[in-house]
Design a protein around this nucleic acid. Sequence first.
DNA 1: TATGAATGAGCATTCATTCAT
DNA 2: TATGAATGAATGCTCATTCAT
Lengths: 206, 206, 206, 206
Amino acid sequence: MGIVERKERQKESLRQEILDASRDILLARGYAQLSMRGIAKRIEYSPTTIYLYFKNKDEILYHLCVEALERQFEVIRGAGGDEPSPLLRLRAALRAYIDFGLSEPDRYQITYMADISRYVSMASILEQGSFANKLREFMGHRVNDVLIESGCARDVESVFQVLWAHCHGIVSLLIGRPDFPWVERDKLIETSLDISLNGLVRQRTA
Amino acid sequence: MGIVERKERQKESLRQEILDASRDILLARGYAQLSMRGIAKRIEYSPTTIYLYFKNKDEILYHLCVEALERQFEVIRGAGGDEPSPLLRLRAALRAYIDFGLSEPDRYQITYMADISRYVSMASILEQGSFANKLREFMGHRVNDVLIESGCARDVESVFQVLWAHCHGIVSLLIGRPDFPWVERDKLIETSLDISLNGLVRQRTA
Amino acid sequence: MGIVERKERQKESLRQEILDASRDILLARGYAQLSMRGIAKRIEYSPTTIYLYFKNKDEILYHLCVEALERQFEVIRGAGGDEPSPLLRLRAALRAYIDFGLSEPDRYQITYMADISRYVSMASILEQGSFANKLREFMGHRVNDVLIESGCARDVESVFQVLWAHCHGIVSLLIGRPDFPWVERDKLIETSLDISLNGLVRQRTA
Amino acid sequence: MGIVERKERQKESLRQEILDASRDILLARGYAQLSMRGIAKRIEYSPTTIYLYFKNKDEILYHLCVEALERQFEVIRGAGGDEPSPLLRLRAALRAYIDFGLSEPDRYQITYMADISRYVSMASILEQGSFANKLREFMGHRVNDVLIESGCARDVESVFQVLWAHCHGIVSLLIGRPDFPWVERDKLIETSLDISLNGLVRQRTA
DNA sequence: TATGAATGAGCATTCATTCAT
DNA sequence: TATGAATGAATGCTCATTCAT
């Protein structure tokens, strides 16, 4: 009823607050500085309270990762569906991947932070299907469409992995090296996509 | 003289031992596990002694970064000088970059570990000129040669940054996600270089 | 009526469940590991519920002690009533004391655990009369009968206390030092009783 | 030299202070209340300092046990050597055992505290030889001498174990139940020794 | 140059208990 | 009767760092 519902909402809300605070701290100060005490102070509850919502610190990290991957997929899946050509649909997806990384750098980085992967097995997250069975499959389709249309002989998996790596390179450097004198951000991204996709479809003849 | 010299050598040597031990621990166990105590135990000196060579932990990290970047430049500069064409010389340099990252993942990662950049400002390292004024300049030349030869209208800096990002993407994913079902490593790298360089020189007509 | 009765039965039953769970944990894992949480999990109720039946942890311990002493008396009182001589009746009672300790080591130990006596004053238990006024009186009678019959000049109280201590020594060492290379258990017990009772009735002439 | 010596003495002294404080707390308040922080407060050093002298809490307990057993053996070994008969020499040793327990109840109890034995394996202590290879052997000799002299047919091991248990019973009850209305302490002890030794040598004829 | 002693701050986690419902 | 939410206090332990020598 009303009461139960409200309570559940409250409970869920505090749970989310904990995750939010944890993500903030994690990205702002790194894994080493992510402490239960710190989280507690941020949400203005006692450290003990956190244990009512998460079994331990690792469980918080795990949920942070899952959440980030799910959000990523959600954003990318929705991109470019109405573009007129396979190439443009692929480009839109890649651009969405990059934009997601840049607009939600906290969530993006979480899944790539070396330290985290030491504590939260990526394997256990991939098993959840978030990434492997969803994003990968989705991107695979778009890549495949392009290869077919352009008559390009490359294999889907290689191309997918290369494109992913290129985009990841762009995102991670922009995020990770904010001090570097980058050229204008949008120009950098578009140049990257130009080069990658152009290089993909125009197979070298030599 | 002899004595002073020996002392200097010893001093330099212990200093280097500290850096070596630190790098080992850092890469093997992560920033969170890099402790002064741990370093001390490894080099078989007291923790206090480390403070005679480095002001604090951050200074060790700083030198680790500088050292890694210098080593990187050394390796890349030597690559592909005898290749017959600008494009092949650029390709050789990029391949050297990737190979360096994969063959010395510890040194490579150090400069890209999110955690480290929180403690050691990249800016302070770039100011030293190691990277910006050397590798960047060097790669800039090779990129420029290719652009001129191919009559491509792109600007050097954008292209350099994009190529760097693409290579970094490849290296960092291969290193950071060893569990991922990658296609055969060499094929992945060559495909990436193919796509990037092919996309670079064959400007889109449309 | 029926409802009240059932409720009472339930109440009594949960109360007993709490005591049972507590005893189990206490003996299996020690005082340090006896936690309200632990008890709650065992009985599958919330920790809070325990407070409806016991004021606090100490009260649980207190009841555990009382219960153990009552059970002990019950067992010993029933022993050896049909033996033909005072000496054999006393021996049977002592043997029952030892057997009780060994067959219900959990209950036995509870009343002798150093840690517990720090939390539950023995005095408060003895005042209840359980032990002092029952077991002590009972054993006093049996001892007295032996002293009279054998014409031994010792005073009852001293002898009772000595015999009690001897038996306690046997039980507590067998329980507390299970790793020790004891001689065969029954032989040890009988030898102890032999020595104690033999030494009791055969007064030294010198 | 002087300095090194003084430093060593200081170091040893703080180490001993830690053990003393730990023993005090352990006996006064029990294992559950023995905390590193508590020890630190008592010796007026920071908790961290304790870790410079002992690896962890268990190591403190271990040393407490070893120390107690060594002290016990030292005291008992010195007892009754000049008594004129085997029986009196045995009696003196048993009396020394009891007296040790009563005059240094803290040290005595440590080795018999149930909780401790859960944390510090008795086996590891016995291997040290303190008890098994020293006290046991020593008492075995004295018991043997009595058996030979009195022509008693019992086996040494059984008798040793029974006498040990009887003495332990006396000590542990006197220590553990200070509230109990014991008869005069010395009378109790002598009565116990009378009974045990009298019962030992005067074999039952029946 | 090198170190042993010492410490304050911090960590994750557990516990007994209270309170409102 | 029963509980979920919450907490303050406590625990063992590790760390970077300082200081006197």
